[in-house]
Design a binder for these strands. Structure first.
Length: 390
RNA sequence: GGGGGUGUACUCAAGCAGUCAACGAGGGCAGACUGUAAAUCUGCUGGCCUUGUGCCUACGUAGGUGCAAAUCCUACCGCCCCCA
């Protein structure tokens, strides 16, 4: 009982439906319950904003429940309207497949292989009969769906709302029915969709579905999402150690505490220690380095984390060259190298970079587009990109 | 079905015949400052080269008028609003 209560009030969880007390009772009944978390493969990466859910799933498994990871390969082709101010352009099946490839690999970094079941919702939706879908759609009203604020936003702005976008919450809800689950885990922004599933489970299966809404990685100051794909500011579980460390360091200071709290599994006492240190005026950089270290340790390993940290300090704090850098076989003019190596997307961009004094060869600024590059040269572009010429 | 709007670069959004590769904002990149921070300030942000009052491609699609079109005309496609 204590363990369950502890779990339900853990820092990862924002809200529980129908209520904490009721859920505690349901979970204690000794029955092995089935919980699921769903993720739509809309991009190639799982990022730190997703992991809070994975931690919760892991805890559920430890408490003896069965856990399912649902890959929304069908729903991804529609797109969740949550948070969207425009109709999403539909993903093709091919794109979805491409994105899906790395998902499991990334999730296995937290949940061991075989500790959970994997399902795909295209399995039921791709061959569902219209008459069966109507039974679902009939349960809801247009008013319920349209009430959501992002739809209201769009109405105000005369922006289109696709009919299929109303289907999204219903589909997410119906997933619970098909899989006959007892509970769902998802980000707080998914609460509406998860509650739709609660209604459907009650109607179709006659039981009460538990909804566990997890905390979102939000900046406490700006209330903006910390992992923001569209603004290119996110850390993926697939990032190399260097990338991950660097990206974490580039996060604003206000993101440190949320990230430590919801994106790592360090102890609660460690969290309060961090909080105290930040409030006590310690240089946030030190704390951020610890955070970056912790994350690299989680998704790579301790040794790598140690090395990455040392390397980071060497390159950025002391301005020295990184230990290892990419190599590129080339000989010719610097503009051509920049383009050929992908450091610049076009010849024009390469020239621009040179004009902006962003390009160094062996520590010296290059001003001439035609400057020759030879084997052994070390090219630096901008503050953080290095290339060794082979 | 009738009427009125609208479609512009990664996103939002100006322009409504020449001075438009297209104002502005966001994003991105680069520079200064720094803690690789963040915030701030500055610059750049379609491509190609022979770097030029240069060429090519681009303002939903296809045509047309005209010396000249994102801007005008016609048709088509998409979207929104009002009336029925």
């Amino acid at each position: 009982m204590n363990k369950i209560k502890e779990f339900l009030s853990s820092r990862y969880i924002e809200a529980v439906f129908p209520s904490k007390e009721r859920v505690a009772e349901m979970m204690i009944a000794g029955k092995r319950l089935v919980f699921y978390w769903g993720i739509d493969p809309t991009g190639p990466n799982v990022h730190l904003g997703h992991t809070t859910n994975v931690f919760v799933m892991k805890k559920l498994a430890e408490l003896g429940h069965k856990i399912i990871l649902l890959i929304g390969d069908f729903t991804a082709t529609i797109g969740d309207p949550t948070d969207k101010e425009a109709v999403r352009k539909p993903l093709t099946e091919k794109e979805v497949k491409e994105n899906m490839k790395t998902y499991l690999e990334q999730i296995h970094k937290i949940l061991s292989k075989g500790s959970f079941e994997v399902r795909y919702n295209s399995k039921w939706y791709s061959k569902m009969f219209y008459k069966d879908w109507l039974k679902v759609a009939m349960k809801f009203t247009q008013q319920q769906m349209i009430a959501r604020d992002m739809f209201q936003e769009r109405l105000k702005k005369d922006k289109p709302i696709g009919m299929h976008e109303f289907d999204y919450p219903m589909m997410q809800g119906y997933d619970s029915v098909v899989m006959n689950v007892d509970g769902e885990v998802g980000g707080n922004d998914q609460t509406f969709n998860m509650l739709v599933g609660r209604d459907l489970v009650k109607d179709f299966l006659g039981k009460e579905k538990i909804v566990i809404a997890t905390r979102l990685l939000e900046d406490p100051v700006t209330r903006k999402k910390i992992m923001n794909k569209s603004e290119g500011q996110y850390v993926s579980l697939n990032d190399s150690a260097e990338e991950m460390f660097g990206r974490v360091m580039a996060m604003p200071d206000s993101a440190i505490l949320p990230l430590f709290s919801y994106a790592t599994e360090v102890s609660d006492s460690k969290i309060s220690e961090i909080k105290k240190r930040l409030e006590g005026g310690e240089n946030p950089m030190t704390v951020k380095k610890e955070l970056a270290f912790e994350l690299v340790k989680m998704y790579h390993d301790g040794k790598t984390a140690e090395k990455t940290k040392e390397n980071f300090e060497k390159v950025f704090s002391e301005g020295r060259l990184p230990e290892k850098m990419e190599e590129f076989k080339f000989s010719g003019k610097i503009v051509e190298l920049l383009y050929a190596s992908g450091l610049a997307g076009s010849m024009s961009e390469a020239k621009r970079l040179i004009d902006q004094k962003a390009v160094y060869i062996n520590g010296h600024i290059v001003t001439d587009w035609e400057h020759d590059v030879k084997s052994g040269d070390i090219v630096k572009v901008g503050p953080r990109r290095f290339l060794r010429i082979k």
